[in-house]
C-alpha cells in the first residue's frame, strides 16, 4: 500500500520533470526569445525575485477563494436542506439553481462589481456564484440517498425529525457532499481569478489575475508565467487538501476512501 502511495506521488512528479526538462532544452536549443516563451529556469528566477509582489497577490487570491468556498458550503448546504425539507421548495427554486450554474460569470461580474462597493466582497460574490452549484446538487442528492431499510428502522423506533436528520440523513449525505466540495474548491479558484480579470480593469484588487494582466501590458512574460504557475499550484493544492479532508472524514467507512478489502 505504501508502495502504491509512493507511486502515486512519484509518477506524476516524473512526468513533470520530463516536461520541464524538454521545455528547458527546447527554449535553449532553438534560442526562443524570453518575451515569447521564457524557460522554466527564468520563470523560477522571476518567482523568487518578484516574490514580494506575487506572494502578496497570491494571498489576496487565496483569501477570495477560501471566502467564496466557505460561502458556497454555507449557502449550498442550507439550500440543500431547504430542498429536502419540502418538494415544493425544490420544485419552485431548483430551476434558478440551474440558472446560476449556466450563466457565464464574465457576463454578470461587471454588474456585481458596479453594485457592490467593496472590491473583495464583489469578487467573493462572483466566485461563490461559480462554486455554489455542485454543493447544492450533490448535497441534495446525498440527503435523499438514504437507505430505505434504515429509514424504516428509524421510523419504527419513532425517531424524531431531528434524530433522523443528524443520525441518518447527514452521515448518508457526507460522501456526496465531499464529492461536491472537491469540484467546488477548483471552481472557487477559477471564479476568483475570472472575476478579478473583469474587476482588475476597473482598477481594484491586486490578486494573481491582476498581476497577469499588468505583466501582460508590460510584456513581462516571465512574470505572467510565474503567476500562472502559482495559480496552477494553488488549484492542485486545494484539490489535494479537499481530498485529504474527505479521507479524514470518510476514510474509516466509505468505499471511495478505503483501499483495503
Amino acid at each position: 500500500m505504501t508502495r502504491d502511495q509512493g507511486q502515486r506521488l512519484l509518477l506524476p512528479l516524473f512526468v513533470a520533470l520530463v516536461i520541464v526538462g524538454l521545455w528547458q532544452w527546447w527554449v535553449t536549443a532553438y534560442d526562443i526569445p524570453q518575451f515569447l516563451v521564457p524557460s522554466p529556469l527564468v520563470v523560477a528566477q522571476t518567482l523568487v525575485m518578484d516574490w514580494s509582489l506575487l506572494g502578496a497577490a497570491l494571498l489576496v487570491t487565496l483569501k477570495v477563494t477560501f471566502l467564496a468556498l466557505f460561502c458556497s458550503v454555507l449557502l449550498g448546504v442550507t439550500i440543500a436542506f431547504a430542498f429536502v425539507q419540502s418538494k415544493w421548495i425544490e420544485t419552485a427554486f431548483f430551476p434558478y439553481a440551474v440558472l446560476l450554474q449556466v450563466t457565464p460569470i464574465v457576463a454578470i461580474a461587471p454588474l456585481i462589481i458596479i453594485w457592490v462597493k467593496s472590491p473583495t466582497a464583489s469578487l467573493v460574490i462572483c466566485a461563490t456564484l461559480v462554486a455554489l452549484f455542485p454543493i447544492i446538487a450533490n448535497t441534495t442528492l446525498g440527503l435523499r440517498s438514504v437507505n430505505r431499510g434504515l429509514q424504516s428502522l428509524f421510523k419504527m423506533n419513532r425517531a424524531t425529525r431531528w434524530q433522523t436528520l443528524v443520525r441518518l440523513r447527514i452521515p448518508s449525505a457526507l460522501p456526496y457532499f465531499f464529492g461536491g466540495l472537491r469540484i467546488s474548491s477548483g471552481l472557487a479558484l477559477i471564479g476568483a481569478v475570472v472575476a478579478e480579470f473583469v474587476a482588475g480593469t476597473g482598477g481594484t484588487g491586486t490578486g494573481l489575475a491582476y498581476q497577469i494582466l499588468q505583466a501582460g501590458y508590460q510584456l513581462n512574460i516571465p512574470r505572467m508565467f510565474a503567476a500562472l504557475v502559482l495559480i496552477t499550484l494553488t488549484g492542485v493544492t486545494l484539490f489535494a487538501l479537499m481530498g485529504a479532508l474527505s479521507k479524514w472524514a470518510l476514510g474509516s467507512w466509505h468505499e471511495s476512501e478505503t483501499n483495503s478489502i
Binding site: N147, G149, S152, L153, M156, R158
Partner: peptide, 17 residues
Amino acid sequence: KQRLSFVFQEATLMPWA
C-alpha cells in the same frame, strides 16, 4: 411498539458507525 423488532432482508447497518 417497543416489544416489536424488525429484521430486514439486508443487514441495513449504518456503514459510518
